[in-house]
Design a protein around this nucleic acid. Sequence first.
DNA 1: TCTTTTTCTGACCGTATGGTCAGGTTCAGG
DNA 2: CCTGAACCTGACCATACGGTCAGAAAAAGA
Lengths: 214, 214
Amino acid sequence: MTENSAINRTKIKRRSANRRATEATILAAAESVFAEAGFGGATMQLIADMAGLPKANLHYYFATKEALYRAVVQRIFQIWLEAADAMDGAPGPAEGIGAYIDAKMEISRRHPNGSKVWASEVMHGAPVIQDYLETTLRDWTAGRAAVITRWIAEGKMAPVNPEHLLYMLWATTQHYADFGHQIEVLNGGPLSEADWESAKASVKEVVLRGIGVV
Amino acid sequence: MTENSAINRTKIKRRSANRRATEATILAAAESVFAEAGFGGATMQLIADMAGLPKANLHYYFATKEALYRAVVQRIFQIWLEAADAMDGAPGPAEGIGAYIDAKMEISRRHPNGSKVWASEVMHGAPVIQDYLETTLRDWTAGRAAVITRWIAEGKMAPVNPEHLLYMLWATTQHYADFGHQIEVLNGGPLSEADWESAKASVKEVVLRGIGVV
DNA sequence: TCTTTTTCTGACCGTATGGTCAGGTTCAGG
DNA sequence: CCTGAACCTGACCATACGGTCAGAAAAAGA
């Protein structure tokens, strides 16, 4: 019995592992295609080709194009929120905001497609993640704004509007993903390791000095 | 003869005026639809409905969907570049960059759809305005970076990487258009006049202090 | 080995889309 | 008035798309 259920679990796990692997392949392809073409411009056929699967197989794992898109967006939101941890438990703005900028810059570098899909989703009125904006993101923002307000009250930084500061952080860091193509053209090619370090340092330098932290 | 050609000119002008008016109507509708749905998600039928014209009429003025899209993007680029004047002839960064932020914030407020179309275009790899990026924008950027470098040499501002500073300016100001929906949700409604003033002031305050001005 | 469940796929379908076109309407010019 | 050019439009077409489905393979279970 115990043996049986153990085997059972193993097989279920292996099965699930395969399933998850295929789903991951599809999600990666979908993220790439959605980022490059937008929801309307993306086609299931293109995603299927990129994933190396027949189109019908996509519909076996994800019932509709919108369901697939929804899965992509949700995965991105998770990554997005995890960067929030970087701001937690910091003694002051220099560490907290500095670490947050680092984390978000790293996301822009490692997951540019995800960032683009998110930007595209919001730009088009957030048709599928409206509820996230109104609940999770709203709560998160309110919490961080409170922390910033406290830092200001404690004299640890200049009195800056917390919401607009957060918008600046999002804007400056995401810009390196969403407008990565423009930046690459102006840079005369992809950003090197040194370029990325320079970008991170510049953003941190201007923002931290801008909020009165040296 | 002189009379004749004068009449001719007037009539041609009136005709042209009508044509321009219709084109403007179509362009406005197209900008709105492209901004909301992206290039792939936009349909000629939707644009036609919004413009109050039969679809076939659109194809009389703009041969293809792509030609219409191209016209929309080019118009936006013009507005975008005109804001550049705000930075010209300024004695120092406080005036020049301050005015540029004001101008770009005003664009985000008055032309949010244009900004979204531009962002979308760049995010998707700039399929139609690649040449603009490589010529006009590149030259403009190089010129402004030189000005910033000069200001730094003259000790008028902190030594900040000029390119990354420009990216920050673009990012922070465009964010209010491209992510306007997200901001409105977090703000609990559209930004009021006071909200916009607060946004402008916050961005200018943080950036200017961040580059060592004031 | 046989049965059942899950996974996979080629072929197909209804629809919506970008684009065309023949013919109508308007209007400046004579 | 008449003419020709510019402007407008309903009806139509070919295609590409999202989605379906019957049934084949493969895997799991007994």
